[in-house]
Design a protein around this nucleic acid. Structure first.
Lengths: 167, 167
DNA sequence: TTAAACTTTCAATAATTATTGAAAGTTTAA
DNA sequence: TTAAACTTTCAATAATTATTGAAAGTTTAA
């Protein structure tokens, strides 16, 4: 496997993984490209490498900036805008997890709380609805706060020290 | 909020959450419906409640069975097939996490390993590709095994005992 | 200012994914 | 066996989501 093959393989795999962290393919691929680039890239370079249109590139880069994953960089003597991505995987994971929680998990938790605290009219089906949504609510709250605790740890959890806690 | 409103709200929220655990809307809604039902349901009842076609119901129920989340139940004296879902949230979470890992995370980890162990040709860009994919590989491995450890704990992690470890 | 060099917007369209429903298939009771 | 009562399959279609590219907008250098 030479450089080009490996690069394409990484970018396309990362792109299809987009769904796993809740973003579209182009957005994930742009991030992947910047992640392995040795220098900041322009819109033009991104378009050419990924074979996507100018508009598509512009919109997705902006979204990545919005997520806090990509930053505009100024290159001396150049008029064009250059983009770079967060290169530290831990920081990247932290940002993704936080955004995912904020955008998708929190709203669901809110609904679960609303439904599970509805007035009990005494019927079996209402009791079941309350019971089950309450259980989901607790699970979601616990999982979400666990996620936050894990990613907010400044110590390097990649070193597997955290893992030992579960052995 | 009465029973019907609460039920609809729960089903539609859970349905739109489908993307978060990697399944489609109908599949998530069928699971939600069964999850709050006080008795096993038939294809007919699912179709009518969710207003989806017979074919759609059949295919998605089968997929849920495939995931190990829904089971066929026989009701004495009835010819029709009845369906029930796993009612314990912890067990449900365990199944979903395991399937998600197997279907999506493992394949990505495999690619990351392949790319990160490519031959180093000495160029800066190859070195960067190897370095970054190696970091992602380690992160993905750690996160995946942490997930497995957490969900495999038989003790009730919902009680927040696990959470204390991170405080 | 102006005009060249850029970026952004957004309606049109393409691509993808989900859904339908009728036909085919299967199971069960008699 | 047969036929009624079911479930499954799958080509056609609908719905959703992503992408394009030209026009509009913005910035910068002179």
């Amino acid at each position: 496997m030479n450089y080009e093959e490996a690069k394409d393989k990484f970018i396309s795999t990362w792109g299809s993984l987009g769904s796993l962290w809740g973003i579209n393919k182009a957005m994930a691929q742009i991030q992947a490209l910047l992640f392995i680039s040795t220098k900041p890239l322009t819109t033009e370079e991104i378009m050419d490498t990924l074979k996507i249109s100018r508009g598509n590139t512009s919109m997705n880069v902006r979204q990545l900036i919005d997520w806090g994953i990509v930053t505009k960089t100024l290159v001396a003597g150049e008029r064009k805008e250059f983009y770079t991505t967060e290169k530290d995987v831990q920081e990247l994971a932290r940002i993704i997890a936080k955004e995912r929680s904020r955008r998708e998990i929190r709203p669901v938790i809110k609904t679960l709380r609303e439904v599970s605290t509805m007035e009990d009219d005494g019927t079996a089906k209402t009791k079941e609805l309350i019971k089950q949504t309450k259980a989901l609510h607790e699970l979601a709250e616990t999982a979400d706060s666990m996620l936050h605790k894990i990613i907010n740890q400044k110590q390097n959890w990649l070193t597997k020290s955290v893992l030992k806690l579960f052995s």
